[in-house]
Amino acid sequence: MFREMRRKKQLLPLEETIAVLDRRTSGVLALSGDDGYPYAVPLSYIHCDGRLYFHCAKSGHKLDALLANPKASFCVIDLDDVVPEEYTTYFRSVIVFGTLRVLEDEGEKRRAIEKLAAKYSPDHEEGRLKEIDREFKVLCMLEMSIEHMTGKEAIELVKQRG
Rank of each mutant, 00 (worst) to 15 (best):
L66E: 05
T17A: 03
T25S: 15
E4F: 02
N69C: 12
A40Q: 08
G33L: 06
H47G: 08
P13E: 02
K71L: 12
L21D: 00
L43V: 15
L31Q: 02
Y45E: 06
H47R: 09
G33F: 08
R24L: 15
Y53T: 01
A40R: 05
H55A: 00
H47V: 05
L21Q: 01
Q10V: 06
E16I: 05
C48L: 15
V28W: 13
T25Q: 15
V28T: 10
R6W: 14
K71G: 12
S59Q: 15
A30T: 11
F2C: 09
L31I: 05
A57Y: 00
F74E: 00
L21G: 07
R7A: 15
S32A: 09
L12A: 03
V41C: 07
M5V: 14
I46Y: 01
F54K: 03
D22M: 13
Y53K: 11
A65Y: 02
H61L: 14
M1P: 06
D22N: 14
G50M: 09
L66C: 14
L66H: 09
S73E: 05
A72K: 10
P38W: 00
D22H: 04
K62I: 05
A30N: 05
V41K: 04
D34Q: 12
S73M: 07
K62Q: 03
K62W: 00
P42W: 11
A65P: 05
V41S: 02
L67A: 11
S59D: 14
C48E: 15
D49W: 02
A30H: 11
K71I: 03
H55V: 05
H47E: 13
H47A: 14
F74G: 00
V28A: 15
I18K: 01
D35T: 10
G27V: 03
A19K: 10
A68K: 14
V28F: 12
L67Y: 05
M1D: 07
E16S: 10
C75E: 06
P38H: 02
D22T: 13
S44D: 14
L29V: 07
Q10T: 13
R51H: 07
G36V: 03
K62R: 12
D22V: 08
G33H: 09
A72F: 03
G60S: 02
F74A: 00
M5F: 15
F54Y: 02
R23D: 09
L29E: 00
I18N: 03
S73K: 08
G60A: 04
R51T: 07
D35A: 12
A72V: 10
P13V: 12
T25H: 15
E15N: 06
P13W: 04
S32W: 04
H55S: 01
R24M: 11
H47T: 10
Y45R: 01
A65L: 14
L29W: 03
K8A: 14
A19Y: 07
G50D: 07
L11K: 10
A68H: 15
I46N: 08
A65M: 08
C75L: 14
H61R: 13
H61S: 14
A72Y: 02
M5S: 09
D49Q: 06
K62G: 09
R3L: 11
Q10C: 15
R23S: 09
G33M: 12
R51D: 03
D35P: 01
K58R: 07
L63W: 13
Y39A: 14
A40Y: 04
A30C: 08
P70V: 06
R3M: 09
F74Y: 10
A65Q: 04
E4L: 14
S32V: 10
K9R: 15
Y37T: 11
R24P: 11
E4D: 13
D49L: 08
S32L: 07
V20M: 01
